[in-house]
Design a protein around this nucleic acid. Structure first.
Lengths: 132, 132
DNA sequence: TTGACATATATCCTTAAAGAACATATATAC
DNA sequence: GTATATATGTTCTTTAAGGATATATGTCAA
């Protein structure tokens, strides 16, 4: 087959930025650790491409959503430890609003679908919420 | 301005394919009409780039999610009228499942945010599962 | 002490999708 | 017959994700 037929589940939005901000909300962290914590937020599969994380962290620092400092203490090579700024918190808050808005739209869409595909075989069309 | 600072609301997923399938669910239609109906589903702004719609319709036909026929009746130029196929219905159903899944993840994320930013000014820090 | 391995960060390249501009064709009204 | 609204289609550019790879450093064992 040449096509491939991606049935239904195409590439979804990753929400990388809000996930990173959320992770940093509970305390400073660094790229390598964030790599392992990010999947917990639900928007990633198990393996997160490292380049993407570092790229985003840099970009976020440029936008002053986070600040970084080098930390040489501890074992292993030095880490660049990031911390979220007040501006970062605001942006995360905005992301939350954006997500709630998105949730509402998804809910409306699903509800519309349900109402349009409701089984019309019953003798009466009583409630529209006869689902499991 | 050099930076740009896209604060919080970056480019969101458009859900073009499910929107098109949904629109066709209630009856056959064609590109030019769909252009005007798509914003009703909430995932588009007012103006939908026409090229995008035709591109998607074509691709969906190649995947056999829709079928088209030329219709010369009526006024104006001939229209390519699309109809959703059984396979298309299945894919829409899959999209709905995907959306519900996404909704759940968004809900979890927002709930997590709320729990982490809850005002800690209260006199006790009870359990970690004090969610409503 | 040196070689292997885990940790940690950074850069580059390719691909896929969106966005936008542009091109084509036809029927109808004037 | 010419202008305009309808209708479809193509092409180009930009952007972000995904993936591969490069670099550097500390730890541990032989």
């Amino acid at each position: 087959m040449s096509g491939g037929k991606n049935t239904g589940t195409s590439k979804a939005e990753r929400y990388i930025q809000p996930s990173l901000l959320m992770a940093l909300l509970s305390g400073a962290s660094y790229g390598y650790e964030l790599l392992q914590r990010l999947p917990d937020f639900g928007f990633f599969r198990e393996d997160v491409p490292p380049g993407m994380i570092y790229r985003h962290l840099r970009q976020m620092e440029e936008e002053e959503l986070v600040i970084s400092r080098w930390e040489a203490e501890g074992s292993g090579p030095a880490k660049r430890v990031y911390e979220v700024t007040p501006a970062g918190r605001e942006v995360l808050e905005a992301w939350i609003g954006h997500m709630e808005n998105r949730m509402r739209k998804l809910q409306d869409f699903v509800a519309l679908y349900r109402s349009r595909t409701a089984t019309h075989t019953a003798d009466h069309c009583g409630g529209k919420d006869s689902e499991r």
